[in-house]
Design a binder for these strands. Structure first.
Lengths: 290, 290
DNA sequence: TTAGCGCTTGAATCCTCGA
DNA sequence: ATCGAGGATTCAAGCGCTA
C-alpha cells in the first residue's frame, strides 16, 4: 500500500546531529521544540531569557539542510511568566529573519479541547502558533491536497481521521481525491484557512504527545509529495516521522532522550506495513536507518 | 433597563485629543486602530515601517489615562508585504513593554467568515490578534459575566461536533457569546477560553464596522461593571461606544474623520433609550458630550 | 413559524501595468 | 528601479424574499 518510505533516526543533541544532514536535502521541517521552562524532567528546560540564544544556531542549521523550495513549520507558544506572556517567540521570529528566513505565515492551531484550569486573571489557553518559515518566496505548496468540503471544515477533518487509508491512496495519483470525493459528490470543495481547528491528542500513553497526528499530516500533505523528505529535529515520541512514513514520505528524526529514541526505534522495527531498507551507514548505535 | 450612561465624543487627532482626558480615569480601552497601509481613503494610511513610531506616543497617552486596575485591548493584525508577514505588531509589543505596559495575554479572534481569495502560496487569513495590556499585574476582571453554558460539546465525542457548531452559531442577541444565558439557567456554566469565534459584520450599509459588536461587548462585560468608563481612541462608526452605552457604561470616543464623527453624533441624538446628560464643558464643536 | 434560495459584502493578496 | 492603482480571485454570513 505504501510507497517505499525510509525512516532515519538520530540520537543526540539536535544542533550536533543536524550536521550529519547534507545541505538542501529536506523538503519540509515540522517540529515542536521544548517550550521555555517546560518539560524540565525530559529536556532539562530552556530558560525563557535564553531561548532565542539556544534556538538560533539550530535554526541556522535547519536553514542549511532545507531545500530552497522547502518549508519550516514551527509549533510554539509562549508561556506566562509573572503574569505576562513572554516575548521570546517574537524575539525568535525577529532573530530568524536576521538569519535570512522569510516569515511567510502564522497559522493558528485552535485547540478544541484545551487544558482545563481556572485562574483569576486569565482564561484557558486554547491556541498555539504554527509559524511558517521559508528560504525563498517561491516554495512548494500543494493546496489541493488539503481542500475541504464547503462550509464544514471540522467535519472533513473527522472524515480524514477515520479514513486514513483512503487519504493515502488519494495522494498517490495526484488526480485529486479518489474515494473520499465520492462521499462528497454534489458538494463543492474549498480551500481551508490559516486556522486549524483540531482536538488535542488525548491518548493515554505515558509520554507527552507534542501535537495531534493530524497536525503534521496536514502540513505534510500541503507541502510535500510522496518520496519527499520530512525532518523533525525534536522527534519526541515520533508522531511526525510515523505520519510521514505512512504517507509515503521519507522521514528523519532527531532525539536527545535515549528513552524516546529507543521507543521509536523499536516501534519502527515492529511496524509490518513499512517497506524498509537497510543502510550501510548504520555503523553506530546513534544512527538507526531502517 | 440601562443605567445612566454618558457618551463623550471628541473630534480630532487621537494623540492630541487624548490630552483632554485626565490621568487614571478610564477602566477599559477597546480599540481597533487603522492597520498599516489600510483604509487609506478614510485615514490616510500608516506605512508599515513607520507604524510603531506612529503608535508609540498614542500608547503612552493611553497608559496615562488608564486606571491602574484597567485593561487595554488592542485589535490588530499584520498584513502581508512581499510575501511575508510584517513584523510591526511584534515590534509594537516590544516597544509597549519598554513603556511599562504588561503584555498580559493574546486573545485570538477566529473569524468565521474571512475575506475570500486564492493565492498560490497562502490561504485566506482567518484570524486577528486581540492583545491585552495592563498597567499592573492585578487588574479588574469579572469572569462570571462571560460564562457560557456547558454545551454537549464539552463532553461530546467527535461525531457530535457538527451539531454543536450549529448550536454555538446563534450568537445574535448580543447577550453573550453563544446563547441567551437565561435560557440556560440551571445548567452548568463554564468559563470561555482565549479564542473568540465570531463572524465579521459585512452587511453594514454605509460604513464598515471595525469589528462585530459582540467583540467589544464581550470585553466590556469581562473587564468593567456598570458605571465604569470605556475609551475607544479610534471610534470609527461607534461600535464600541454604543455597545458600552447600552450596557450602562460611560463611553469616550475619539475620531479624526469628520464624517464618522458627525454620524455618531447624530446617532447619539436620536437614540431614545439613552439616559443622557448635558455637560458644561461642551464649549466647542469638537467636544460633544451627550 | 420554519426553511430554502438568491443577492450583497467584506481590515485580503498577488500580479500587471503605467507614471 | 520604485511606487501606486486596478483587476481577478474567492467564500461564509446575513438579509429579504418566496412556499
Amino acid at each position: 500500500m505504501n510507497k517505499k518510505s525510509e525512516i532515519t533516526i538520530l540520537l543526540g543533541d539536535c544542533a550536533e546531529q543536524l550536521r550529519r544532514i547534507p545541505d538542501n536535502s529536506v523538503d519540509l521541517i515540522v517540529t515542536s521544540p521544548p517550550y521555555a521552562d517546560q518539560r524540565k524532567t525530559t529536556y532539562g528546560g530552556v530558560r525563557a531569557d535564553k531561548y532565542v540564544e539556544w534556538f538560533a544556531p539550530i535554526a541556522a542549521e535547519l536553514k542549511r539542510v532545507l531545500k530552497p523550495s522547502g518549508t519550516f513549520i514551527l509549533n510554539i507558544k509562549e508561556k506566562v511568566i509573572a503574569g505576562e506572556r513572554s516575548t521570546y517567540v517574537m524575539e525568535l521570529i525577529l532573530e530568524m529573519r536576521q538569519q535570512g528566513w522569510l516569515w511567510t505565515e502564522e497559522f493558528i492551531w485552535h485547540k478544541k479541547n484545551s487544558f482545563p484550569g481556572k485562574w483569576s486573571n486569565r482564561f484557558r489557553d486554547s491556541w498555539e502558533r504554527l509559524l511558517q518559515f521559508n528560504k525563498e518566496r517561491k516554495f512548494a505548496m500543494y493546496q489541493q491536497a488539503v481542500m475541504v468540503p464547503v462550509g464544514d471544515w471540522a467535519k472533513s477533518r473527522l472524515k480524514n481521521l477515520s479514513e486514513t487509508d483512503k487519504v493515502r491512496d488519494n495522494a498517490k495519483n495526484g488526480s485529486g481525491f479518489g474515494k473520499n470525493v465520492s462521499n462528497w459528490q454534489g458538494r463543492d470543495m474549498v480551500y481551508p484557512t490559516n486556522v486549524l481547528h483540531l482536538a488535542t491528542e488525548c491518548n493515554n500513553k505515558n509520554h507527552s504527545a507534542a501535537f495531534p497526528r493530524e497536525l503534521p499530516e496536514w502540513f505534510i500533505k500541503l507541502f510535500t509529495r510522496e518520496g519527499d523528505t520530512i525532518l523533525d529535529p525534536f522527534m519526541g515520541s515520533g508522531t511526525t516521522v510515523f505520519a510521514a512514513s505512512e504517507m509515503g514520505r521519507n522521514a528523519i528524526g532527531i532525539e536527545i532522550v535515549p528513552d524516546y529514541f529507543e521507543m521509536v526505534k523499536s516501534q519502527i522495527a515492529t511496524q509490518p506495513n513499512n517497506s524498509t531498507r537497510k543502510n550501510d551507514r548504520t555503523t553506530t548505535s546513534q544512527l538507526c536507518r531502517v
